[in-house]
Design a protein around this nucleic acid. Structure first.
Lengths: 191, 191, 191, 191
DNA sequence: AATGAATGAGCTTTCATTCAT
DNA sequence: CATGAATGAAAGCTCATTCAT
């Protein structure tokens, strides 16, 4: 369900992503976006009714792109533990190499720019992860805990570690990731 | 090291917190803050050099206030496990009853307002928690894991659960909190 | 001397008339006119060099149309008094059923759109009326007054009454019109 | 019931009157008004919420000013015929020397800028004239005709003559005015 | 110290017009 | 001939900040 975007729309979204990642929403006038995208200022408004709508569209595009990266390599044949590990590692490395995307997404996750429509899409995009977790609970690979607790035990540490690695001096080497995954599995795994 | 604030400063910060919580950074002009605080627009500039500095000062005040609430009841005599449980529960209930504060802090946390100065203050304010965790590792209550992993296993789930409870339909009752704490302890506790 | 207009030109003028009648000059972008007329935005510029010229052309068309309605039934055999009465009644009923036209013309009449060219056309279109009046003066049906005074005594009340009937709650029934015509004739008629 | 205006408001309204008289509404950006008035662009918005509101306020001010000029010298002791003559002459000479005002008022009389509020004020300002006319009907100086007809017979010719004198080559000398007033009185006067 | 009217740079957005297709 | 996507100048308006009182 990924919409086809014209070349111009792509250019506009790319420019917006980069500029907002660097300078924030305030620091990014529409004129700057237009210039960076190589289009006229008015052209943006053919595609997006307002700056707000542009941001929302960008949010959806980036969220989808990240999702695709995180799920890369996933098949239902993987054990849930392996699947979680795969996604965990994918997410960490996505964050490492796609820092512009994450700087933008983090900025907008709690912003008042995100409208209800977009929030709904966000939740929809979470459903892939929920499915994996639920499979784990059904299969007995994951202990019988409330879904929100299991989600929190996986995505919470992931978010903390990746943002810590971006802000501070933590290096997320393989050993540390293994330790984190092991800890997570102790908390939610059976046995 | 809590600075003494004049009555006017308090009024200004209170007004800022509430307005930003409701309407976001963009939606909150200085004039609105002045009006809500019952002071002249120019008066704010006696105390804060710019809007940015005002926001930063507010961040420090709110972070300190939250910190105080989270640490409420903590003594060094508590076992680390009990201390973490106390802080966890305190944090959850703080988020529940001080939602304006958290709406502001969440917004601020990833905003381009954050300067290096503020980043330093943020880490300073984390140091109390770090101390507790380090005590746990030394004592042998917590397994010998890298500090960032332990921090991630505690604060990650906490952040996820509380923001989930604010956005969606998860109710953080005592049972669910107990389950989460148990899961956390399985992941980082000895034995 | 009515110009032949293509079907497209008619559609464009029709759309312009209706939109400007509803939303005013400002509220009517060329794109809206194009859409309502069912033509491309660029097509309008094949026929009219600019928006201003389009408006002027519309003025000429509408003024001619109204003129034709007002003069309907007129022959030189009518006495001047009857001719004035006919035109007066025709004008009143035209205003009643062609309100879009009049809303446009009233707006236009005092607008800065009017250029010298248009002003000349306007006077030309008045000449039919002037002819009738002058005949009346020659014949002795109308008192020997300066032409502008006679014109003012006929068209002034007409304009006032019809705009009053559009704005307020005056109903222009036959009796009232008869009274007005009688009053006019007392003022300019012989005896 | 004339509102007190600050010096700045006066300057803004004066600038608006002159510029719109010269260049029309479209040709007059807020920035030009601000410059001519010698104030900052933002200052206008302290006094008027929008350009539209500014125009409406100007309309009310000018309409009141004209009204005062037209009624100058009027007392209830004058016969209605003399009163109408006075107002008629006052109006003609006002139009002659205050052409900026009239160019503005004519432009806006039929524009969509005029809001309901302003329309109500306009009618209120007409009430002085209505009073005089009604007195004339009661006294028996004016024939027993419907009010709209009498109004139309006075204000219609007045409007036609003054706009004709502005647009074309009619000179409104005393003789012509006397002839017009005589004609009016033949139409509405008793005997 | 406190005020709040005044500022004006800079924003988002519109729309008459063009021109490659 | 016709189109309508693209343009970009220019508009209305906001708001962080200043400064005379």
């Amino acid at each position: 369900m990924v919409l086809e975007l014209t070349e111009k729309q792509e250019a506009i979204l790319d420019a917006t992503l980069e500029l907002i990642g660097e300078r924030g929403f305030h620091g990014t006038p529409m004129s700057a976006i237009a210039e960076k995208a190589g289009v006229g200022a008015g052209t943006i408004y053919r595609y997006y009714e307002s700056k707000e709508e542009l941001i929302n569209a960008l949010y959806v595009r980036e969220k989808q792109a990240i999702n695709a990266q995180v799920l890369k390599g996933y098949t239902e044949e993987l054990s849930v533990r392996d699947a979680v590990g795969l996604m965990f590692r994918n997410a960490i490395s996505a964050r490492a190499c796609e820092s512009a995307r994450f700087r933008f997404l983090d900025q907008y996750y709690n912003s008042p720019f995100i409208g209800d429509e977009t929030r709904r899409i966000r939740e929809q995009l979470m459903s892939d992860y929920v499915d994996v977790i639920e499979r784990g609970i059904c299969d007995g690979e994951i202990r019988d805990l409330p879904l929100p607790v299991v989600m929190a035990m996986i995505f919470g540490p992931l978010a903390q570690l990746s943002s810590a690695s971006q802000l501070k001096d933590v290096t997320l080497d393989d050993e540390l990731i293994d330790q984190a995954l092991d800890a997570i599995w102790r908390s939610i795994g059976c046995e």
